[in-house]
Design a protein around this nucleic acid. Sequence first.
DNA 1: CCAAAAGTGTTGGGGATACACCCATGA
DNA 2: TCATGGGTGTATCCCCAACACTTTTGG
Lengths: 223, 223
Amino acid sequence: MIEKSKPIITPLVAVDTVILTVHNNKLCVLLAKIKFGPFKGMHGIPGGRVKIDETLENAAKRELLEKTGLTDVYLEQLYSFGSIKRDPSVRIVSVSYFALVNSNEVELKSTGKYAEITWCPVHKLETLAYDHNTIIKYALFRLKNKIRYTNIMYSLLPNKFTLSDLQKMYELTLEKKLDKRNFRKKIMSSHLIKESGIEEGVSHRPSKLYSFKSNHPVYVEIF
Amino acid sequence: MIEKSKPIITPLVAVDTVILTVHNNKLCVLLAKIKFGPFKGMHGIPGGRVKIDETLENAAKRELLEKTGLTDVYLEQLYSFGSIKRDPSVRIVSVSYFALVNSNEVELKSTGKYAEITWCPVHKLETLAYDHNTIIKYALFRLKNKIRYTNIMYSLLPNKFTLSDLQKMYELTLEKKLDKRNFRKKIMSSHLIKESGIEEGVSHRPSKLYSFKSNHPVYVEIF
DNA sequence: CCAAAAGTGTTGGGGATACACCCATGA
DNA sequence: TCATGGGTGTATCCCCAACACTTTTGG
């Protein structure tokens, strides 16, 4: 399987992962400051070469684990980008993924290749390395659509949450206010979540807590 | 950019294209009989390695041109498949595309790598080479969804067509009968097509001909 | 009793579905 | 005049959007 003494005439394969969360009441993406190469000093989403003996998804999971310490989150392949000069130094095809994480469960870790790692609001992005602005836009587009007919919000929220929490997630993602009564009707009629206790220690009427029935993707019309 | 005397430790990159059409009143996929390699003798969708100096989309267009002689058809990236053993002899990541063509405009051409090329009804598929059954299923899923909110049927039909022709395309793709009156109302209110003459030489009331206003993808809610 | 967020019902309009008959043409 | 497919309108239902007040708790 391994050929020797041949020039590389194939594009290389990398995986780039758009890791999204809600942090400080804003939809954010995980960015890393790049230490080496043509985009040294710029920020970008984490990524790296796919090893010969790992699947694309496993490469994305490896990246995710390194940067966030998380394993069981929603992860989905987005699109493959193959412009010839997206990396000016070498021909790389990037298979992009997007992940949804709950920022409270994450401790950001820098690793060898990156200088620092931060959450950056998706609507205040500087110019990023490679074609990463494009990739993030694509991820946001996909996310906006997908929350209308799946339960993938489970991956953005803690296990138990209030309906107001959930509504806020939808509002931040869709970038618009939603009507509270209609929102609740739709969510409840989707049967994706179940009651799961009562909030405590708040100085107002305590809300019911809910949790998703499934922590795996389920497809149902919601909106 | 080209490194010498190093073992290849990166997966190779290929493009596989699901070419769909309506032929003999059935939704069909273009299959090719494979001449060489581990799947010799089996059928599969056309594909091949991506060259170092061509984009993914251009690789798919090249494949399409070779097999069908067509250039200006609807072509969209589907998904990238990267199982480690999808090709048992070498690690290949396949970026899949799907295309819609009008079978009347196509003359199928065999080329070096493939023994024969045929249209095969998508619901009568044998077991194909690689993971090509999976890829085709994925393409059909995408197509079924996409015709509900885009004009991509333009690529499956001749330039001028009747509303009955169009309805038949939808029915074959969605695998269900549609109500004629409601279908026409929805299509007309989408404003995607325009009147374009009258049918001639039929032994019944001649139908109006229509054509798509745009032969490029347009997104509009239809169904 | 006040502040703060939770929780809850009704109405009206628009779009989708269901359904059946007349029309234009060639043979 | 008949066979063939082309072409059209209406009634109903359901879903969605719009909208404001009461409830519960802690301080």
